[in-house]
């Protein structure tokens, strides 16, 4: 019954080996899907390449549905997994800042690592930027320390907040995602027809 390490079915010594293996799989999938290119990544915002939408959204719905089935089959105890805690206001602010950074930089941390691995200098500079940004955050932390901890709702799930059961969200996200896939395919075709020189 999972999760295996918290339930001590696998000892914690394996933790770091598993971490590397999972990272390898993650990095491989990202790069193989084309996430090692900032132009591919930024494409989702301009309509010429929706790979981000397709991979990301598919992953979310597959994982949501997968977790629910794993719970049903008794393979995974959902009450034992880590739920990202919610700090309402700081997270909204943080995600807005990240959104701007994403469009400006054309990367997010994970994808920048895969791009560095294949020799993209802009990814390296992005990663340097990450370092600087986090450093500045830490140095200026006393200024907004209280704000950082504000809005704490605990490790709440969507169900905790809305009272709607998880399958509704899994199904809802699935429907929206599938609709988005079909619509974006059409948009992409049109946008690409108009931009003659989309070079990979």
């Amino acid at each position: 019954m999972g999760p295996l390490i918290p339930n001590e079915i696998i000892t914690g010594d394996w933790n770091f080996v598993i971490a590397i293996l999972i990272g390898i799989a993650f990095g491989f999938l990202l790069e193989a899907s084309g996430f090692s290119s900032s132009r591919n990544l930024a494409g989702v915002f301009y309509g010429y390449n929706f790979v981000v939408l397709r991979v990301f959204f598919t992953a979310v719905i597959v994982a949501m549905v997968g977790l629910l089935y794993f719970d049903y089959f008794g393979w995974l105890d959902l009450s034992k997994i880590f739920i990202l805690p919610t700090y309402l206001s700081p997270m909204i602010l943080g995600s807005v800042i990240m959104g701007i950074g994403f469009v400006m930089g054309g990367f997010c941390p994970g994808t920048s690592f895969t791009a560095i691995a294949i020799g993209k200098m802009d990814a390296l500079f992005f990663a340097i930027g990450l370092f600087i940004g986090i450093f500045i955050f830490g140095e200026s932390f006393p200024l907004f320390k209280d704000y950082y901890y504000s809005g704490s709702m605990g490790n709440v799930t969507l169900t905790d907040v809305t009272g709607i059961a998880a399958p509704w969200f899994a199904f809802g996200f699935t429907v929206i995602a599938l609709a988005a896939f079909w619509v974006s395919a059409e948009i992409e075709k049109k946008v690409r027809k108009n931009t003659k020189e989309y070079k990979f």
């Binding site: 549905v65 629910l68 719970d71 049903y72 899994a170």
Partner: peptide, 11 residues
């Protein structure tokens, strides 16, 4: 995918 997602209601 729709069927699988739908299935989560019934487990």
């Amino acid at each position: 995918m729709l069927l699988l997602a739908l299935g989560t209601f019934f487990v």
